[in-house]
Design a protein around this nucleic acid. Structure first.
Lengths: 206, 206
DNA sequence: GCTTTACTGTAACGTCCATTGCAGAAAAGC
DNA sequence: GCTTTTCTGCAATGGACGTTACAGTAAAGC
């Protein structure tokens, strides 16, 4: 019983998601969320409790409506090798294209701000980011395994990690994955390496 | 003539840099900068004009004292192939290690916030980021050319772009570079590719 | 139609922010 | 020692923020 909302909740969350996507959690102001959704702050707080509650709804909606549909081609066998190559190519390609466009994704991945900004310190948000990364890794590894069973296991593992790391690094800036990519690159460098001598030098670019 | 500052300017900027590094420009508050530098806001505004002026000084100091020293091994011939492999390996390795540590770099690259945050919209800051990316690209390409003249030009170019893209993507999140990395990955996928047929599918992960 | 429940508009709250004014303190040059 | 220049401490300004209180309105169930 009672009065019905004068707005479409799904559309509201989508509009809010766009604001968070563009400005990040901290820089997205409540007045701006009001403007974008066309809904008064009273209704927003009544429905979501807080700015943070609305952000959580936006995160969920982002994963369900944006991320997962794009990963589905990797998870639906049979995966053709050529299709996989094209898929990965165009996936990364689209990232670059979006970055220069003026669409929703022009400011990068919504989870980027979650990981890099202060909100990323929050345990609940961090858990979402970690789960997202695992999901992405599994999708890439699974798709690659289905498409290229002919590849050597080690090579395929390196390739999967490298692709995942690149996508994750570009999207969510989880720098830990760079380790795996570094292994891949090292392997690539070793292929036609003239001498096996090494001389480690611990340094950081910051 | 006149009174001398009661602080060491270089140390002050380093302390401020650490704050900007950790929290980003927008989230770094003046009271926190006062605390970290041990200098009153009056002196800060007297010396740097504004919070933004202090940030500019921190950016310059970051490039001079942090970034360029790490790139020098790539720019000082002769570069040994083994040393280059180790250098790149440990460079990326250190990025991951720093990310999990509690040092200055635990929050990523200082220029990351400059590129991803609202301050990155500023023309002057954007110019710094672009120059930084070009410098990094030149260093990697130059080092690789010096170390591995035996490699095929195309392969070496791909490798250089891939390494640069990975480092830049992980550090500064300039997604345009992902294009070059995607080319590299595509080349890697093509190496042992059974069939040449393609079927483009334009999609974006966001 | 009346009650109950839920949504919505206006206005205000307290807090933090970057920035500024101003009076005072310290040191360099004569 | 006096002047000049520069640095510093304290206090306040105006504005933006997230959040809440409250009165009002609309619709669902009986």
């Amino acid at each position: 019983m009672g009065r019905q909302p004068g707005y479409d909740t799904a559309a509201l969350v989508r509009a809010a998601r766009r604001v968070f996507w563009e400005h990040g959690y901290e820089q997205a102001s409540v007045p701006e969320l009001e403007r974008a959704t066309g809904v008064n702050r009273s209704s927003l707080y009544h429905a979501f409790g807080s700015k943070r509650g609305l952000y959580d709804a936006a995160l969920t909606s982002y994963l369900d409506e944006v991320v997962r549909p794009r990963l589905r081609p990797l998870q639906t066998p049979p995966v053709q090798p050529a299709a996989l190559a094209d898929y990965l190519q165009h996936l990364l390609d689209a990232l670059a294209r979006d970055a220069t466009g003026d669409g929703d994704a022009s400011r990068g991945c919504l989870l980027l701000s979650a990981a890099a900004a202060p909100i990323g310190q929050d345990d609940a948000v961090r858990a979402v980011v970690v789960a997202y990364r695992a999901e992405l890794r599994a999708a890439v590894a699974g798709g690659l395994a289905a498409a290229r069973p002919d590849l050597d296991d080690t090579v395929r593992a390196h390739l999967a990690e490298s692709v995942t790391a690149l996508v994750v690094a570009a999207l969510a800036l989880v720098r830990v994955d760079v380790v795996a990519a570094a292994d891949s690159l090292r392997a690539a460098l070793e292929v036609s390496r003239p001498e096996p001598a090494r001389q480690p030098a611990r340094q950081s670019l910051g």
